[in-house]
């Protein structure tokens, strides 16, 4: 499911939609969150339309997140705030809100790019916000510098989902440690489901613990490796059957003396050391 890829620890999620699905943007993201068990009480949205003209609307959202988060976490509010930095590590209570912003086209209709970037950055830094979702459809961006603005949003985002065609999407993920991965997926979309299948064979999926795909169960292999590391079944049997030269043929047992008595031997059980002349 797409929600396994998008609803992760990464905080700022940008969806670039080439398919003109902007009208269902809010529903789309809401459904992703719902699939991952994020209830409506954890979701905050901004009103659309003329109210976006007023800076107070944006301030109110941040204040609302802060107030409600503090109320939810009282008296252990401070603990919740600390946990907000690492979503999912808390005691099960919501440690921040999922903020779904209006589409970038709508935001640009009422606010300047500088304000939008600044607001996005504030949300990113806020400890009361767990995730921020922004939807951008290039065919709806009519700002003269739309390309640069979109690139700026990509720079701020930690997850960039690009819906390329009806059957193809790509996902750029920036991890906190600095690692970046760019994966492509085939997708199957219906009105109520969004199924994805990785296209890059052998790439680590690791993001769909609930519904692992057959590809996800394979041994991970770096895509750029020039070595063949993994073994197939026949090779595994052959390797197990091979005994290397330094290996002992039989395992050592406890020490014992094997003695075959001669015919002339007169063995006295009462004095076994008789022949030693001591």
């Amino acid at each position: 499911m797409l929600s396994n890829l998008l609803v992760t620890k990464q905080k700022v999620v940008l969806v670039i939609d080439e398919l003109n699905r902007e009208r269902i943007a809010l529903k789309f993201i809401g459904s992703l969150l719902h699939e991952q068990g994020q209830g409506a009480e954890t979701i905050k949205t901004l009103p659309t339309g003329i109210s976006l003209k007023h800076v107070a609307t944006f301030e109110a959202l941040i204040a609302e997140c802060a107030n409600q988060n503090n109320n939810n976490n009282t008296p252990a509010g401070e603990t919740g705030d600390l946990d907000a930095g690492t979503p999912g590590s808390g005691s099960g209570k919501p440690t921040g809100f999922n903020v779904i912003l209006p589409t970038l086209a709508d935001l640009l209709c009422y606010q300047s790019p500088a304000f939008i970037f600044s607001f996005l950055n504030r949300l990113r830094r806020s400890e009361h916000v767990r995730r921020v979702f922004l939807w951008a459809s290039p065919q709806h961006l009519q700002h003269p510098h739309a390309e640069y603005i979109l690139a700026g949003c990509e720079y701020l985002a930690e997850l960039v989902l690009r819906l390329e065609t009806d059957k193809l999407l790509s996902l750029i993920s920036r991890k906190p440690g600095g690692g970046v991965s760019n994966r492509r997926f085939a997708c199957q979309v219906s009105k109520t489901q969004f199924q994805v299948t990785p296209l890059d064979e052998g790439l680590p999926t690791g993001v769909s613990p609930k519904q692992p795909t057959p590809e996800a169960e394979q041994t991970p292999e770096p895509a750029s490796s020039t070595f063949k590391i993994e073994l197939d079944e026949d090779e595994m049997v052959a390797r197990n059957a091979l005994t290397l030269p330094y290996e002992r043929t039989s395992e050592p047992t406890e020490g014992n003396i094997i003695y075959t008595p001669d015919a002339d031997d007169d063995f006295d059980e009462e004095d076994p050391d008789e022949d030693l002349c001591i």
Binding site: L2, R21, R23, I24, K27, F28, G30, S31, V189, S190, K191, T192, Q193, F194
Partner: peptide
């Protein structure tokens, strides 16, 4: 004409 707005796609 949009007949129905689903969660992930429109009819």
């Amino acid at each position: 004409r949009v007949l129905d707005e689903g969660n992930y796609a429109c009819e």
